[in-house]
Write a protein that binds this DNA or RNA. Structure first.
Lengths: 107, 107
DNA sequence: TATATTAGGTTACGAAACGTAACAAAAAAC
DNA sequence: GTTTTTTGTTACGTTTCGTAACCTAATATA
């Protein structure tokens, strides 16, 4: 049985650096560029690129407020919010199975 | 609220090219190197690398059969099988929301 | 007029990840 | 000794990524 192209495309999208975290961050509600950026150590260049990809996929919408200085808000579409189930399962699995090495292990 | 390190690590792992597909493939049962490789267009070099990372994380085990020629079988651990829920949700979301552009669009 | 301020990018450039293709190991068959 | 087969490994060129400098636009300040 060969791999479903929809699934392959989804894997290809989520299998990109930072994409999952950007979506997870936006699940907490609409946020501006600088707020997303503050959530984890992504570079501005890559965040721009990832948001553009997510916008092209119909997962995120971009809204510009012509204030001074400009404010740009990103929010999930219905398609984007549907990813909550995926992110939720990743969090669930991580809490059950992931181990983190402490920065100062004794003995 | 800051990002849970376990979740961040999980995202970092699954947010690598091919990792999700390798796990998905192994959910169908133990498979040898060449079988996994045939499932999608990953290079041998990267498949070696990804399998080593998954082994280091305790998600996959590697078993060598000293036959001629050698046979190497990879299988998911309990931690790896627990990713079934994540992969399942990705497949679910993909079927509900992903659009695939046809190779020859009429109009 | 000129300069400063600020968010959200964009660009140039070096570093890391990736893809391709040639090669290596090992053991048995010929 | 040569061939065959699977599972890698290495060399090398391409793409992606990270860092830091720069740009834009509107307003405030000097």
């Amino acid at each position: 049985m060969s791999l479903c192209p929809k699934v392959e495309k989804a894997m290809q999208l989520l299998g990109k650096r930072w994409t999952g975290l950007v979506v997870k961050q936006l699940l907490d509600g609409p946020q501006r560029f600088s707020e997303i950026k503050a959530g984890f150590p992504i570079s501005g260049k890559l965040l721009t690129e990832r948001l553009k990809e997510l916008e092209d996929e119909g997962i995120v919408t971009r809204k510009v407020y012509a204030e001074v200085p400009v404010r740009v808000e990103y929010r999930l579409t219905e398609k984007g919010r549907a990813l909550q189930a995926v992110i939720g399962e990743i969090e669930h699995w991580a809490h059950d199975w992931m181990e983190i090495k402490e920065q100062a292990q004794l003995n």
